[in-house]
Amino acid sequence: MARKSMLKVIILGDSGVGKTSLMQQYVNKKFSTQYKATIGADFLTKELTLDDRRVVMQIWDTAGQERFQSLGVAFYRGADCCVLMFDVNNAKSFEALDTWRDEFLIQANPTDLENFPFVVIGNKIDVDETRRAVSTQKAQRWCAQKGNLPYFETSAKEATGVNQAFDVIGRNALQQDDVEGFDQEYPDGVDFSQYEQERSDCAC
């Protein structure tokens, strides 16, 4: 039985930038200050219509602490779009975007490295302006350098900019999905045997 057209989206970014909150706000329209730190990985799905096509977006939320990524590469594969997220009030989380992007490209190993769709999100714009650490211009400059990546500022808390961001995420993912040819049955793109191989080769 063929599965619905599935778009796989991965959200990456430092711990505490609001990955879980963003996903919850988009899918379930709710917010809590008390989401626990994500351990391992989880995803939510949302059905949507993009230019008359019914698709299911599978949004993967991951742990932000760097070391936990090493076991999680399994679900990078087959991704159609990667969201790089930072907290506009936390300069370090912005500086980490380079690492997150590089790490993703190495692990997911998409066929066309140059044109893989990333979307950048600066979150927590609801916080007092005096605490702001990364200006819009600075973020936009970075995005321009990396190949004109779309940039959105959001407040997962107040639901500002969330739908707009995901609309673009969805479109870019769909385009990527068509390019990669995973348009009917996405999970075949996940190659775990290779994952196992990598693990046993590594010295750890």
């Binding site: 351990i39 391992g40 990985a41 076991l71 999680g72 399994a74 775990f192 994952y195 196992e196 693990r199």
Partner: peptide, 8 residues
Amino acid sequence: THFFFFFR
């Protein structure tokens, strides 16, 4: 069989 879903 990588049992990643038991990570947490």
